[in-house]
Amino acid sequence: MNKKLITRIVIAVVVVGAIGAGVGYMMWTKPHPKAEDQKGIVITTTALAKEYATDEKAADAKYLDKWIEVTGTVSETEKNQDGGLMVVLQTEDPTAGVQCTMENKDVVVTKGENVTIKGQCSGNGITGISLTRCIKSK
């Protein structure tokens, strides 16, 4: 085998290896998605709650893991165990709020305020529909 060929093979292996390592590193250090970069499905809290109450499976197919932008009235706020903030938006059903866990714990909202919040839907539960990584967009 001539030297030139060996050199070429070595270079090719190194380049392929470097690309592989680079892609792997990029995947490994991939950042979490940000609400700011997402376009949310626009819906009211009441409409969202109705869809979930009518057919949870169908609503999950439409909304689960998707970014949603909901507008509604703040019924309460709850501090979580790590100091984070959950904003609960009311729907027509008092037992089913839209529960928005805010990305920034210092967001200020007041009870009774009408707000628009964008977050990623984690589905429906016994106390309401969960949105996570939320930001207050209005």
């Binding site: 979580n80 984070g84 984690s122 589905g123 539960g125 016994i126 106390t127 996570t132």
Partner: peptide, 21 residues
């Protein structure tokens, strides 16, 4: 941090529910 929990102190019923996502 989004786990719903309900406890009924009289019956002792307890429910935890969490969205995996």
């Amino acid at each position: 941090n989004e786990v719903a929990t309900i406890i009924d102190s009289k019956t002792g019923d307890i429910v935890f529910q969490m969205p995996i996502k």
